[in-house]
Design a protein around this nucleic acid. Structure first.
Lengths: 335, 335
DNA sequence: GTGAAAGCGCTAACAT
DNA sequence: ATGTTAGCGCTTTCAC
């Protein structure tokens, strides 16, 4: 009931319980050597005071905070991010880790935020669809902070990463388009800065040309809806018109479908095939029914969690390339 | 180059710079009284050591951490959340505040996570589409931690909140449906536990009945796509069939549109009107062109930020009800 | 099993 | 303007 200025400390609890402050600490440390009796006294006193151990103080001593830093770049409108964030939140919460989250705008690196994160002595760092300057990355490693590049190739190979098998997915999509009889597929690219975008593009093109097709037409969509709308418009206005459009993510592919259907009056699949990448929730909606390469959010998050939670200070840099599953749908069904 | 076990401290910097440890502290405290000369020495030493002030230590003393806790409930698939989170991230980052984020699953309260947040001595708390037990809420207030209920009515009126004008939005939608000539509008409700859902529903129903219509048919969609699909199916199978469906959020309305269009072969607008609430990005896509009540994410986030950043310890509990803008679109255009 | 004491890295008086 | 000193709330030896 009484309004205090500062929360009760272990000392306060100790007074009330009639024990030493150290005993209070032990009572709240699982596995510490303390008599059941003393612990009960402490707990009762703690409860009556509304005591909660100050994690800042504990972290100060232990040198680690129980906090994992997450920095994401790219387009926040992309539903894929929210799925990943949500899965990560649930996964790390099981490991009693908390997430300090940041976003970087545009093509900037995560550097500014990582500086802050280091000041909080975070236990690990996850960089999602964004990069870090090699210098800072090295400082993190020297400080013993595991850093995971998620959805982006790391600046140097000795940093851990979790990446989808972008080139393979792109290859499968290309192969499927060929088998469906499309002969003039075009590409909507992402961003030159993004390794993910580059891989999804080059894997696609490589397969097409290996099968004797010429370099496909290409426009840049910047991973954004706006960009994809314009890219699709330009591509579909060309003569001869591409008979298929592959976008390096679903988010852009949905835009392409709408341009083709509502602006050009084309029937998706029969008159123009559209394919994406990610298998976001909307891809399976009847309005789109988008052919795509499905990334299992659970499995990439699991991989990332393993790397993040690895023994602190002595992480083994690793790279996992997570395979997805090709999902043919109506958007590339010719008949 | 050398791999250290623990990061350099202010003491280390002081040694190298040939000053006292306090001087180092001052050098990194904006506005502290320190000679430009000394500061330079400190900065040089700091840079050479790769020193970064330990924010945990600073927070321990200051009693506040620079961290704001955000707990969100509801359906993480709802794009509205990501927009809000993103806007909040940008807004708070300007105030040099960081966000520790949590999610609660199902109908649970935010209690577990708030316990953790209190242990980190967060400066403020934002609860989005979720609630807190009155007891914990009071403990937060007693600890001087501002707590904002976002998108949810607080357990007691003396807690701050930022809420959209749900009843008014619902009223405008009802009025619009009437004017468009719809006479048998049905409702897809949210969750009984959600004040937002209840307000959006009751505001709608209240206006209809005030205009002489009978209580509308009603199904529960639980704010989820799955739930909305089923609700829409049930409603559209009734005889006589409702001539309009109002869903208490856009996310569910998109599902309703697809059921009506692809499963019942109905023409949206002419044969069945569909309206939502929120104005998420997809609402304006040509595939849906959904009539809705538009909430400005920027403005609600601004409101929330003002409350969050209010003088710590002495926040003035306040309630802002943010008006939106009614957006008539083709999904309720009769002709 | 328990208490006393040292100290994590920093800020904030208090001197000078 | 700068150094000295005393903590912030905890964990961790080290005695006992």
């Amino acid at each position: 009931m009484s309004r205090r200025t500062s929360p009760p400390s272990a000392h306060d609890v100790a007074r009330v319980a009639g024990v030493s402050q150290a005993a209070v600490s032990r009572a709240f440390t699982p596995g510490a050597s303390i008599a059941k009796d003393t612990q009960d006294k402490v707990f009762r006193a703690a409860k009556s005071l509304g005591y909660r151990p100050n994690l800042l103080a504990r972290s100060l001593i232990m040198g680690q905070s129980g906090i994992v830093g997450v920095v994401y770049g790219g387009n926040p409108r992309n539903p894929f991010f929210m799925s990943v964030l949500d899965a990560l939140l649930k996964r790390l919460s099981r490991a009693r880790k908390h997430i300090l989250i940041f976003t970087v705008e545009g093509h900037a690196t995560a550097d500014v935020h990582v500086e802050d994160l280091l000041k909080y002595r975070v236990d690990a760092l996850l960089l999602m669809a964004t990069t870090l300057s090699p210098k800072l990355a090295e400082q993190c490693r020297d400080a013993g902070i595991p850093i995971i590049f998620f959805n982006r190739r790391p600046p140097k190979k000795d940093f851990a990463s979790v990446i989808e098998n972008n080139r393979e997915g792109a290859r499968q999509i290309a192969e499927h388009l060929l088998q469906q009889g499309y002969r003039r597929p075009a590409v909507v690219a992402g961003l030159a800065e993004s390794s993910t975008g580059r891989d999804r593009e080059s894997g696609f093109i490589a397969h097409l040309t290996s099968q004797g097709l010429p370099e496909p037409e290409r426009e840049v969509g910047y991973f954004q809806r706006e960009g994809a709308l314009q890219a699709a418009r330009k591509l579909l206005a060309r003569k001869p018109r591409p008979d298929a459009i592959y976008c390096v993510n679903d988010h852009m592919a949905l835009a392409a479908i709408e341009v083709a259907r509502y602006e050009f009056g084309l029937e998706i699949g029969r008159q123009v095939g559209v394919a994406g990448f990610d298998d976001i929730e909307q891809a399976s909606w009847p309005s789109f029914d988008l052919t795509t390469y499905s990334i299992s959010v659970e499995s990439i998050v699991d991989q990332a969690a393993m790397l993040l939670l690895g023994t602190p200070g002595h992480e083994i840099p690793r790279h996992s390339v997570v395979d997805g599953v090709f999902k043919p749908r109506r958007s590339t069904q010719r008949v």
